[in-house]
């Protein structure tokens, strides 16, 4: 991770006004944070906490009432900053009458990507999200999960340095969620900076380096996820295999005499997501037919490792 700040927000405040320009809602209040290059930063909070408003200010779709905001060293409305940003909105804001391929073609053209390169990237992205077989179907016919996948592909078409994902796993099945999280981790390893917002805490915990928790438009907590979640007053010991009763008794007696307290015992559990994925993987091996979404492949090759030494354009 580099020390270069990709996002700098200082005293960010947004008030929404009514028809008569009177302040009505203070959606974001005095929010300050920085996101470094290569970091996966999570924006957490319940509905109405100011996550989406903050993201829309980062994208130049809303203008801060107060405070300063720099994205990739520029004003968020500067097209030079936008050319290095990818955005996956919470809902599908795609044109329903375009096919999957036309959709990516359109957004590729907006980034002025040369036709040959555009075609290569579209093929790789469709392969990556498992929708190569549906490239000629209109987006309006897609399920929500398929739309999210196309939404993700359009967010990556410009090989962005900063990727902003608003509720990235919303509408995805557990396999899609896992793939999304794996992709986020892979992209981060390649040097991309990722800011994501979610209220699915497990998703955030799995992928984020740092988080900021908002409530009522204000920052309630922020920091590295490890620091925030660690309970330093308790210790868990993991033993490699099941112990016989006599050995277990000896270990527990030793702990009791050393600490003067009764230790708690349980067996580690798989989480439900992991179990579900194993079941589906087993079923997939036994059947040959695929439905809606095909098998997603590895990350698109064009999504290059970001050279942290390259100067900003």
């Amino acid at each position: 991770m580099s020390e270069e700040a990709i996002i700098q927000a200082d005293g960010l405040t947004k008030h929404f006004r009514d028809f008569w320009r009177r302040p009505k809602v203070a959606a974001v209040q005095e929010v300050s944070f920085e996101v470094k290059r290569g970091e996966v930063f999570g924006l957490l909070g319940p509905n109405g906490s100011g996550k989406s408003t903050t993201i829309k200010m980062l994208l130049g779709l809303l203008h801060p009432t107060r405070g300063t905001l720099r994205v990739l060293g520029r004003d968020p409305r500067d097209v030079r900053a936008k050319s290095r940003v990818g955005y996956l909105p919470e809902e599908s804001y795609l044109y329903p009458y375009l096919t999957a391929e036309e959709t990516l073609e359109f957004y590729g053209k907006l980034f002025d990507i040369a036709p040959a390169e555009r075609r290569t990237r579209i093929a790789q992205l469709l392969e990556m999200i498992g929708l190569s077989h549906a490239r000629r179907r209109t987006v309006g016919e897609f399920s929500k999960g398929m739309m999210r996948r196309i939404g993700l592909a359009q967010a990556l078409i410009n090989d962005p340095d900063l990727i902003i994902l608003d509720e990235p796993t919303s509408g995805l099945d557990p396999i899609g969620c896992r793939q999304m999280k794996d992709l986020i981790v892979t992209l981060a390893k390649r040097g991309k900076t990722i800011l994501l917002s979610s209220h699915l805490l497990a998703d955030v915990e799995d992928v984020c380096d740092r988080v900021m928790i908002l409530y009522n438009g204000k920052v309630q907590a922020s920091g590295p996820i490890q620091d925030l979640l660690e309970v330093r007053t308790r210790t868990r010991v993991w033993l490699p295999s099941e112990l016989d009763a006599a050995t277990m008794r000896r270990v527990l007696d030793a702990v009791r005499s050393a600490l003067g307290a009764e230790p708690e015992l349980d067996h580690p559990r798989k989480d439900l997501e992991q179990f579900f994925l194993e079941v589906v993987e087993r079923a997939r091996r036994e059947t040959t037919e695929a439905s809606g979404v095909g098998v997603a492949s590895a990350v698109a090759p064009f999504l290059s490792a970001t050279d942290t030494t390259k100067p900003a354009p």
Binding site: L59, V79, V85, P89, Y93, D112
Partner: peptide
């Protein structure tokens, strides 16, 4: 109103 502009306007388009 359909919010499609929220995606369009985040691209490098004046």
């Amino acid at each position: 109103e359909d919010k499609q502009i929220q995606l369009l306007a985040t691209k490098p388009v004046r």
